[in-house]
Every structure is written in C-alpha cells, then in structure tokens.
C-alpha cells in the first residue's frame, strides 16, 4: 500500500476541511451490484480510490466497467450496495458530491448543431454556472480553444473526445471519471490524452478514475488499479504491487528445443509449457528461474535467451482467464493458489 500512501501525501488541499478528508477515499463502493433482469452486470463490487490517485479500472469488454461507472455517476441505480463520494453516500448527497466531480461516460456525445462553447455553457448551467473564463480555460487545456465557436458536427472523433474531457473538467472538480477516454483515438490522440491525465494529477492534484480494456494504458497511466471480470473485482491494489506477481511467464530460446521442453516438463512447478522449435514459453515461480537456468546448462542445453515477463499484461490475462470460469450457480470455481486478490 506504499504508493497509495505516497499518492495521498502528494495532494495538498487549501481548506482545512479538505485536508481532514485526505484519508477518506474520494470514491468508495460497498458491495455494489446491479442486476438487469436475471443477469448480474456487476456483483458485490467494493473499491476504494484515494485522493491523488490515478485509479485504473481494467477489464475486458462487457466486464461491467461502464455499468459500475454509471452507478458511480448516478446514471444507474444500484440493485445492492452503495456508492460513497468524498465519504458521503451518493444517494442522499447527490448534488453536493457531484458538484466536486466530473465525468465522461463512454463516447463523448454532444449537441452537434451547437458550438463547443454553447455545449459547455449547457453543462455549466447544470453545475450552477461557472465563469466564461473557466470554459475558455478547459478548452485551452484540451487544445480546442481555437475552434470553440465552431459547431461540434464539424469536429473529428478525437476532438469530440477531447471536448468530452473538457466538459468533465468544468468547475474544477477534485475527482474525474473517464470511461475509455482513448477509445477510437489515433496514436497521437492517445498520447495526448495520457499526458493530459498525468498533468491533471501532477498540476491539479486531481484524482482520476480511468477505465480501460487496454492493459498497457493502465500500466502507463495508473498508480492503483482494480481488475474486473464478469461483474466482479478479481484483483485490486497499487499497480507496482500487482506487478510483483510471484508467478511470471518465462520466454526462453534454447537448443536443442526438445531436450529443453522435456526438462521444463519434468519440473512440477513449471506449468503451461509451449514450444515452437527452439522458442519455449512456460509459467514459473520467480524464485525458480535461476535453478531452472542452471539445470538447463548442466543438461548441456544451450540457453540463448531467458526473459521473464512480469508485465501487467500477462497478469491481466491470467486473472481474467481464470475469473471467466464462472460456474452456473454464480460462484467462482476455486483455483489453487488464487483467492481473488493478488498478494
């Protein structure tokens, strides 16, 4: 939890009240669930997002990310559990807490027949009004100030997405929720959005809740994260901690390949061995790698390369593949060595 503590320390609030709130999660969900008909889209979801964090909410398409975000921003009523923003229940303090938050849910849609500025004026009227300079400021932040008076129908997808982020920033919120903000953007657009998110955290001490199905996006941007699959959180914690997985995917090149494969398969702790000529892949505990290397060399096998991959991508895939094994009763099938949260 070290990085959470560090993140909290980086946030400086002006008011004493805000300072006192720094230990209170900006967002907390308790046993949150949503059922549509007989299907649970989200089930028993408990999250905590602390001030100053960029919280990555990672999951494959259809995992329940957008439903969760819709509940956080009061678009969808939870079937079970509750959402707390700034320590207060959203259900009873909706106006008060949403005044301190901003959001972009899925695609950025606007009134296409109105200008970007007019669209933002409509948003500000729902926040109780903000000065005209504030609109210019957020347009400037996302690089659209020069085209503020053009109708949104003339905008490209990337510009609309940036305008979506601009409307989320109106009123200087302390917390913004961005649902797949880089969706459909070109590489340059993705880079700009990532940089913008980093700036929001570093320059404005803003807490960001960022959902994505792209692992590397969360890996590059987030400080803490949760992985959701089939409506359930399967892992949660600081990104650095989650990366410290005790099991890695080992990529090695050795010859002769057949002998290397036989040796790997003889190790009980080595699993999921695949070979293509001299290239091999297997899953091994981190501490086993040096011994495995020695055994290969001792057996007269030439080891050309040996690369343990600790990336979140391997971790994410292993977690979500496991979590997708949902038995019909709704209980996850027990797996050895996995209790739903990584150590």
């Amino acid at each position: 939890m070290q990085s959470q503590e560090n993140a909290r320390e980086t946030v400086t609030h002006g008011a004493d009240e805000r300072a006192a709130e720094s230990s209170v999660p900006v967002l907390e969900t308790r046993g949150l669930g949503k059922r549509f008909g007989r299907r649970w889209a989200v089930r028993d979801l408990s999250l905590k997002v602390y001030p100053g964090e960029v919280f990555g909410f990672l999951g494959p398409n259809g995992a329940g990310k957008s439903t969760t975000i819709r509940m956080i921003l009061s678009l969808v009523r939870p079937t079970t559990g509750e959402v707390l923003l700034f320590g207060k229940p959203l259900r009873t303090h909706r106006g008060e807490v949403l005044a301190r938050a901003g959001g972009l849910v899925e695609r950025a849609d606007f009134y296409l027949y109105l200008t970007a500025r007019k669209n933002l004026e409509i948003v500000t009227s729902l926040r109780g009004g903000v000065p005209r300079e504030a609109i210019d400021e957020v347009l400037d932040v996302v690089g659209l100030l020069g085209r503020a008076d053009e109708k949104v129908k003339t905008y490209s997808h990337g510009m609309k997405q940036r305008l979506g982020i601009a409307q989320a920033l109106l009123g200087s919120p302390e917390f913004i929720v961005l649902d797949e903000p880089t969706s459909g953007l070109d590489p340059q657009g993705i880079k700009e959005v990532r940089e913008l998110i980093s700036r929001l955290r570093s320059e404005r001490a803003m807490t960001v809740f960022l959902s994505s199905h792209l692992l590397h996006e969360i890996e590059q941007t987030a400080t803490a994260m949760a992985i959701i699959n089939a409506g359930t959180v399967v892992a949660q914690g600081p990104v650095t901690e989650l990366l410290r997985s005790p099991v890695v995917r080992l990529h090695l090149e050795a010859s002769p390949g057949e002998a290397a494969e036989r040796l790997l398969r003889s190790e009980p702790q080595v699993t999921d061995v695949h070979r293509e000529d001299a290239r091999l892949e297997c899953t091994v505990p981190v501490e086993l790698i040096p011994r495995l290397n020695s055994r290969l060399v001792e057996a007269g096998i030439a080891v050309h390369s040996l690369v343990p991959r600790r990336s979140l991508e391997e971790f994410f895939l292993s977690i979500t593949e496991g979590a997708s094994e949902i038995v019909p009763t709704g209980r996850r099938r027990p797996r050895s060595g996995q209790n739903g949260a990584p150590r």
Binding site: S74, L75, R94, G95, L98, A99, V105, D109, R127, G128
Partner: peptide, 18 residues
C-alpha cells in the same frame, strides 16, 4: 438517442429540475 443524457444527468442538477 443523441447520448447527451449522460452529460446532463452526471451533473449536480437533479433529475427533477431537468
């Protein structure tokens, strides 16, 4: 249809007001 309800209803203004 336009997807703009998402913008309107994530603001502090109550649904009743809207």
């Amino acid at each position: 249809t336009g997807g703009t309800l998402r913008i309107l209803l994530t603001r502090p203004a109550s649904r009743t007001k809207i």
